[in-house]
Amino acid sequence: MINRIVVGAHYGLKDWIAQRATAVVMALYSLYIAFFLLLLRPNSFEAWREVFSSGFEKFATFLFVLCLFYHAWIGVRDLWMDYIKPVGLRLTLHVLTILVLVGYAGWIAGILWRL
């Protein structure tokens, strides 16, 4: 039995759980959209656009993408922590990763709510 006194900010555990929670949401959405698309087989522009234009679809797709970006942030942050040793370069890559993902989130919101 190891009795450890846990100290610190705990963001490691929070991110560990967040990575798994977002994974479950994405897995469920993937199943849902895969069955939906294989069933409907939208072949024209109108049918394809229709798939994503209902209120629920926008909401679900946006949630999926937000989960994807949070999940990707944790994964890519782990990569920089594993392979990039110089602190300045690592910090720069962290910041760039966040900026790119936040930018993508704005972009997809714009695409979805213009439908």
Partner: peptide, 26 residues
């Protein structure tokens, strides 16, 4: 995971094209 992360931007652009207008879809 790295491959998917690197292709996020191009994939978003493809999705935007596919839902914007019939001409972009084609």
């Amino acid at each position: 995971g790295v491959l998917l992360f690197l292709m996020l931007g191009p994939l978003l652009y493809c999705f935007q094209l596919s839902v914007t207008s019939p001409a972009d879809f084609l």
